[in-house]
Amino acid sequence: MLEIINLNKSYGKNKVLTDINLKIQENKIYGLLGRNGVGKTTLLSLISNQLLRSSGEIKLDGEEIFENSKAMEDICLVKDLPESLKERKVKDILALAGIMYKNWDEEYKNYLIKEFNLNVKKKLMKLSTGNKTILGLIIGLASRSRITIFDEQTLGLDAAMRYKFYNLLLEDFENNPRTIIISTHLIDEVANLFEEVIILNDERIALKDEVSVLKEKSYFLAGQEDLINRVIKAKRVIYKDKFGSKSIVGIYGDLTEDERNYIRTNNIEISNIPLQKLFVYLTENTVKGEFSNGFN
């Protein structure tokens, strides 16, 4: 298990992450979501020891990962390949990756090269944007690392290639379970790939939950404002709007049987919030102080 305890990160005076506490379990696929610039890449780089933290702990199986080369063999972060490799041939870069990760599977790598139809004789700089991304995906998949992280790795990929990646990932995940963390803005496509989702917002973890229960914990309520206000007092309100004389409120959290009865008897309409909208609401600062943001 990967454990993050009271993690903080600032760039100079600029605070990016505040008191991050997370437990990442074995053999689950996690989605890390959040708006651009919210610190997803920073968090992932900290987890994979490619960035110095300001304070806090990161432990793999109870052992601090900082200056721990053993832990590093188990964590593979896929992000844009460094400029310094641009003169190298694709096959040399793959060979290098093969040395770095202890669970590397050479045969699987060859299979992936065929599946993605990647020309390994080319130099990195000669690859298209999409093929550079594919090279990263191949490294991530073939590394079979206990913790494999894909940080926004869809640049330049068309839908067919992205779905190919999702398929290959699911297929290999069944046979070789491991922890996968995917950060993405293409929530639509991947939401159901995840077992759990982590939402980063405003320097902090805004939510961490199983995808399958998210829909059962988030509701739109529509009805008379004063009636609704009584239900939502103790609830986490993530959306608020008015429609004619009706008040529409999005809440996140479990409803008790009493609350459900109240809703029913007071003619308050209730429906589930689709995942998409839920993510948007949770990553927009819609309900911070006043409900000013009237989008949708």
Partner: peptide, 18 residues
């Protein structure tokens, strides 16, 4: 099987298992 569901519908196997 869980795997078949995961593959055909592109969903997390844990969701299918559930």
């Amino acid at each position: 099987s869980t795997n078949q569901f995961a593959k055909v519908y592109q969903i997390n196997p844990a969701t299918a298992r559930k």
